Simulated scan of single mutants.
Amino acid sequence: MAKRLTDILKDAEATKEALSHQLFEFHSQAQENHSVIHAQLSELVDYIHRGRADKKGEISSRGPQQPAGTQITGSAVTPMFEQRVQMAQRRIVQTVLDADANRALSQEAAERDRERRRKEARSLKRRRKD
């Protein structure tokens, strides 16, 4: 019986190590994806700003301009493209962070469940001995 418990313990430790390794790989991949998305969005914003800078000469000859970053249509204020890009970037980052937090919570719940089962198994084992 002790050998069987030792084998189960070794198997649980191996599973824990494998899951830890997978979690580390996932976290690394998420950080890499975040960096790639951030770089791509930064390039897009830079491209937009370059286009705007090229046109500044002709825009300034038109007279008074709207404040940078807003576009007024009727009585509503609509964010400019770069603001929408920044908002989308924030949403993407928040989505990734939320997914990581949810994953961590589900892993914690799974660990609590495993611990509860271990305690139940120990309790059953003690009852059988008595």
Rank of each mutant, 00 (worst) to 15 (best):
I37V: 15
V77R: 03
L44M: 13
T95D: 06
V77I: 14
D130Y: 03
Q89C: 07
V96Y: 03
P79N: 07
S42G: 01
L97K: 15
V93G: 00
E111K: 12
E115V: 04
K10H: 01
D98Q: 13
D98K: 14
S75Q: 13
T78A: 01
P67C: 00
K3I: 10
L97G: 00
A76N: 02
A2C: 02
R114S: 05
R122F: 14
S60M: 11
R52P: 00
Q83L: 10
V45Q: 08
P79M: 04
K125L: 11
F81N: 01
T78R: 09
L23H: 08
L97E: 15
Q65H: 05
L5C: 05
Q66P: 03
I92W: 09
I72V: 14
S35V: 03
Q94I: 00
R84C: 01
S20E: 15
A68K: 07
G51T: 09
D11T: 09
K129R: 12
M87F: 05
L97C: 03
S61P: 02
E43Y: 03
A104N: 11
A88T: 12
S20T: 12
E115K: 13
N102I: 03
M1S: 08
R126N: 09
P64Y: 01
E111N: 12
P79V: 02
G63Y: 02
R52K: 10
R84G: 01
S35D: 14
L41F: 05
K129T: 09
Q40D: 09
Q66F: 06
R62K: 14
L19R: 09
G51F: 03
R127A: 10
K125Q: 15
R126P: 01
L105S: 11
E120C: 01
K55R: 06
K129A: 13
V85Y: 01
A76E: 11
P67N: 02
L5E: 10
S42A: 07
R128V: 08
R118Y: 07
M87K: 13
G69S: 03
V36N: 04
E32K: 10
N102E: 14
F24V: 08
S60Q: 10
I72A: 04
S60V: 13
L5T: 06
D98E: 13
